[in-house]
Structure formats: structure tokens, C-alpha cells
Write a protein that binds this DNA or RNA. Structure first.
Length: 281
DNA sequence: GCGACAG
DNA sequence: ATCTTGTCGC
């Protein structure tokens, strides 16, 4: 390796799971079943979820003293969380990633690739993954967690975008969607108070679920008006990979900073627009 | 047959 | 997702 070039470009750990937009629909669905089988819908990450936040950690005098006397490695660095989002221009897709550590943006990476597949509900990853994986290859930092714009386990074959990407990169991942793809909310979603979460159970449209009672995600009311006529809709949070459903909701809640969407997602969103503008002329 | 359907 | 001004209500 060249001196001074210590890049850690993130590449697929499971190349066989990289979506092939030219595959048949049957092959795509078969791949999704494999991915769901390989996915871990339980916590398996090496950071403290309580250290995830939108603001820089406040160091107490005690913790500073602890740091100085601790024998082991310092755990000062908050987890690195990346927000991933997409935008489109003509027949090209923009993949945008913003990396945050303790509320600070530490890196941004993007890629622009030609679109090869249309939007088909349930097959979103076959449309958007090319740009996302290309953007990850341009990312230097090693993320601890990725927040994707779309579903994870809330999917017909429990293999939504967040799950597909998480498994392919073997990266802890959660999905945050603005709409519900499938599943049955276990309660009313109308005008919920801020902080409320309603479980989304599998239903007949979730082909891979054994029980119809399996919780595949949550409707999470990340923000709500205190009063008035209008109200805000919840977001739909689900496990992507190596994160359990309730932990996914906890993490998303911690990552929201007064807005409906988590901060990494909002920043990736505006970064994608920025890239899009630069590629328009 | 009809409706539903992440981005 | 995207095309887009003003507008209603926090």
C-alpha cells in the first residue's frame, strides 16, 4: 500500500448478494430470500447505543479522570453513524452518504451511476444499490451503523433495502421509511403523541414470516405538533442487519433532533440534492 | 377482478 | 423519487 494512503474503502463482504438489475424477477426474489436468511435481526454491534446522539458527548470531570487512569483502550470516540440517501437525475442515480460522529459531520461521499432498473415495490434495492455501493467505495471512514432511506425487515420477503445493504456490507443497519410497504399496524396510527411507537406485525403479504404475529418493525412518532389541526405522520423503522427491531427504534429516536427524520438522513438528503445540482450543468 | 404498493 | 408557488398553521 502506498505510504500515506490509508483509505478503508468499504466494499461488499458478500459479493454474491450484490443485486443484478438484469436478473429475472424470480432470481431477484430468490436472492432476497437468501438475504433474509443471512440477515441478523438481533443486536450484534460493538458500540454503546446510549452513546449515539445528535449532539457532542459532554465529558464530565469524572469521565475525564477515568479516561486518564483507564488501562484499556479509550472509548472516547462516539460511534460513527452514516446516513444514506438517493436522488435521481434523468437516467442516473445519485448515492449520497454523510458520516457523523457525536453530532459532527466527519465525511461525505457520493457516486453517480446509470439507472438500469425501474422502481418496482419490493425490488427497490435492485434500482438503488449500484449508486449506494459505489458511494460506500468512496467512503474512507469505517461506519458503526448505517441508516437507510427505506425499509429493512418491513418487506414482502423481509429483505428491504436496509437489509440488503446491511447484509451485503456486513454492516449494522436500520431502515427508516416514510411510508409503510407491508405489514399490519397493531393500533391506530392517527395523530400519535410524540415518542409513541406502534408495532408492525407480519401479515399475509409477508411471505417469509412463519407467524403472522412476528413483529417486523415499528411506526415511530418522532415528532408531533403540541396542538392544532394538522398532525405529522410517523416514520416506519425496521431492522436492517445486526440490529433488533426495538433497538432500531431506540437508535432512530436518539438520532432525531427536533425533526421527523433522523439527522443522518436529513443531511444525506440535502447532500444528494447538492450533488444533483452540481451534475445538472 | 380490484386494490395496495419503500424510493 | 420528481415536476413546483403559494399558502396555511405551528
Amino acid at each position: 500500500m502506498a505510504a500515506g494512503a490509508a483509505r478503508s474503502e468499504m466494499k461488499p463482504v458478500r459479493p454474491a448478494f450484490v443485486p443484478d438489475p438484469s436478473a429475472s424477477r424470480e432470481a431477484m426474489e430468490a436472492l432476497q430470500r437468501e438475504i433474509a436468511a443471512a440477515a441478523a435481526f438481533a443486536d450484534d454491534f460493538g458500540f454503546d447505543s446510549a452513546a449515539v446522539s445528535t449532539t457532542a458527548a459532554t465529558h464530565t470531570l469524572d469521565s475525564i479522570a477515568d479516561d486518564r487512569t483507564a488501562a484499556g483502550p479509550s472509548h472516547d470516540d462516539p460511534p460513527t453513524v452514516v446516513g444514506v440517501d438517493q436522488a435521481f437525475l434523468d437516467d442516473r442515480a445519485v448515492g449520497a452518504i454523510v458520516a457523523l460522529r457525536g453530532g459532527e459531520v466527519i465525511e461525505r461521499a457520493h457516486a453517480v451511476v446509470d439507472l438500469e432498473f425501474p422502481y418496482v415495490p419490493g425490488l427497490l434495492s435492485f434500482r438503488e444499490t449500484g449508486a449506494i455501493l459505489a458511494a460506500f467505495e468512496n467512503l474512507d471512514v469505517e461506519p458503526d451503523l448505517a441508516v437507510f432511506d427505506g425499509s429493512g425487515r418491513i418487506h414482502y420477503r423481509e429483505a428491504g433495502l436496509a437489509t440488503h445493504m446491511g447484509v451485503t456490507l456486513d454492516l449494522p443497519a436500520v431502515g427508516v421509511a416514510k411510508g409503510l410497504l407491508c405489514g399490519a399496524p397493531q393500533g391506530s396510527l392517527d395523530d400519535l403523541p410524540e415518542g409513541t411507537r406502534v408495532a408492525i406485525a407480519a401479515n399475509d403479504s409477508v411471505e417469509t414470516a412463519d407467524d403472522v404475529d412476528t413483529v417486523i418493525g415499528y411506526a415511530l412518532q418522532t415528532r408531533q405538533y403540541d396542538s392544532g389541526n394538522r398532525h405529522i405522520n410517523p416514520v416506519y423503522v425496521s431492522a436492517g442487519h445486526r440490529v433488533g427491531g426495538d433497538t432500531a427504534a431506540d437508535l432512530v429516536e436518539r438520532l432525531c433532533d427536533g425533526y421527523k427524520l433522523p439527522e443522518p438522513t436529513r443531511l444525506a438528503d440535502s447532500y444528494a440534492d447538492e450533488v444533483k445540482r452540481d451534475h445538472s450543468g
